[in-house]
Design a protein around this nucleic acid. Structure first.
Length: 504
DNA sequence: AAAAAAC
């Protein structure tokens, strides 16, 4: 619960029982140990119960899922029937989510809250056998949680009929309405009755998306708990100025220094995710990757192993940026600065959930200052660039061999580094002593020194101090909303940063 | 520019 954004009057002590929910639903809530609704729940539930359309913005980790699940169940309870005929079980509520893992998680939540009711739900997403999904739908369900592609597949196969849907929910609504999803979403919405209730939830809504969203809503209520696009204040944000080739070492350093045992490391690209997780394994750090090029089985296992604690570091693309609720996750690291400022808000929202505190650490290279500035503008708070003391690379064993601009190692070195984890951690093998000629792709590989391999020297990255001018410019830009006028200023400042902040 | 989402 986010105390700082609580809007309840003093002494009013809100309680779930005040919503007039069915006893069966209330019982499930109590069993979950919930007593006090969060601010978004307090505000959203009564409105949703009235059947009104709703656009709800609340910070990450403040219980949006229950905010729409509970009223859905309540609205459907009177129509529940014990009949198993699908004809008597038309789909009455449809919840769409942008990733399979999130759909799965939302479905778990819905099933939990519906446990003592007669209402049934099914989850439907791609990458897994479609047949069990068809069976579940045939048996009859009132609530379907889905990702768009597989849902349309079911529509084509006629294993689902959406003509009786009374309630549509878009979880992570701004993502569902973006260019990549919009065509599928439009197709789905066209299959639904015109007269229905539509609920939109997210932690972020850009002005453009808000406008677009209105075209899907009828006379909507708008709820903004705290400020739209704001980060959770329980999350401490740190930005380290780190040059691109130093990021791997910086990561190992931060993991060790802070003794982080559970952390999601976000990267921007799928290839980068696989590469980094393998490097970490070579460092003796239990890591795995989750991204869209992995099979669904691999994705599911990665997430499960991470949740179980078998894996300490989950290297993830933005497939894991939104919605995923990993209990007590202490920290998130942005190895890459996300291209979209909104994604930053969602990424760091994986930590500091349900009132807990969390750490968000970002590695910002000179090339990424533009993105970082966009983030600061979005969240309306400047973030100081901190210096990070790094152990030196091996004098000649540079992790970025000459001629390779992308930092990848030559193929033969790659061949020497098996993809699986059969190999013992590098620290134990100790083949990184300086008793032989250093090679550009040599035994030190990524250049990490640890264990007995003491650093030969250290260098110090001078932090970027946000100048008064840059802060003022960011403020002016966000207030006056004149991006064209200030982007030139921003560019100039970045040149300054490049020269002053990152020279080595 | 990238990621996500059906087969």
């Amino acid at each position: 619960m986010n105390q700082a954004t609580t809007t309840a009057p003093e002494g009013a002590q809100p309680d779930f029982s005040t919503f007039g929910l069915d006893a069966a639903i209330l019982r499930a809530i109590v069993e979950q140990g919930y007593t006090t609704p969060t601010p978004i729940q307090q505000q959203a539930i009564p409105i949703a119960l009235q059947g009104r359309d709703l656009m709800g913005a609340a910070q990450t980790g403040t219980g949006k899922t229950a905010g729409f699940s509970l009223p859905i169940l309540q609205r459907l309870v009177p129509t529940q029937s014990a009949s198993v005929s699908p004809a008597r079980h038309p789909v009455r509520a449809l919840i769409l989510a942008p990733t399979r893992e999130l759909a799965d998680q939302v479905a778990d939540n819905v099933a939990t809250y519906a446990k003592h009711t007669q209402l049934r739900s099914a989850v439907v997403f791609g990458g897994v056998d479609i047949r069990p999904q068809i069976e579940a739908l045939r048996a009859g369900v009132e609530i379907v949680i889905a990702t768009p592609g597989r849902l349309l597949d079911h529509v084509q196969q006629k294993s689902i009929n959406l003509s009786q849907v009374q309630i549509l929910v878009l979880d992570e609504a701004d993502r569902m309405l973006d260019m990549g999803f919009l065509p599928d979403l439009q197709r789905i919405v066209n299959l639904l009755p015109q007269s229905r209730q539509t609920l939109l939830f997210s932690a972020t809504f850009s002005d453009d998306i808000k406008k677009l969203a209105r075209s899907f809503l009828r006379d909507p209520a708008t709820i903004e708990v705290a400020r739209r696009n704001s980060t959770n204040e329980n999350v401490t944000q740190t930005v380290y100025a780190v040059a691109e080739p130093d990021k791997h070492r910086a990561l190992v350093q931060v993991l060790r220094e802070r003794e982080l045992k559970q952390v999601i490391v976000f990267v921007n690209k799928k290839l980068g995710a696989g590469r980094l997780s393998r490097l970490l394994e070579r460092d003796g750090i239990p890591a795995t990757a989750i991204h869209g090029d992995r099979s669904q089985a691999e994705r599911t296992k990665a997430l499960e192993d991470f949740k179980a604690g078998t894996i300490e570091v989950l290297v993830a693309t933005d497939v894991a940026a939104r919605g995923l609720d990993i209990s007590a996750l202490p920290a998130v690291i942005n190895f890459d600065i996300p291209y979209n400022a909104e994604d930053y808000v969602h990424r760091i929202g994986r930590t500091g959930r349900a009132g807990a505190t969390g750490d968000a650490i970002s590695f910002c290279s000179p090339e990424e200052e533009r993105s970082m500035a966009d983030i600061e503008k979005l969240i309306k708070s400047p973030l100081k660039r901190e210096a990070l003391r790094l152990p030196a690379r091996e004098r000649f064993g540079d992790e970025r061999p000459a001629g390779r601009a992308d930092g990848a190692r030559p193929a033969r070195d790659d061949a020497r580094a098996p993809r699986d984890d059969a190999r013992p951690p590098r620290a134990d093998r100790d083949d990184s002593r300086g008793d032989r000629p250093a090679r550009s792709h040599g035994a030190t590989g990524h250049g990490i020194r640890h264990g007995r391999g003491a650093p030969v020297d250290e260098f110090f990255l001078k932090p970027y101090e946000p100048s008064g001018a840059s802060v003022a410019a960011a403020k002016a830009e966000s207030e006056a909303d004149k991006p064209a006028a200030t982007s030139a200023i921003k560019r100039k400042q970045n040149v300054g940063l490049l020269l002053g902040g990152y020279k080595r």
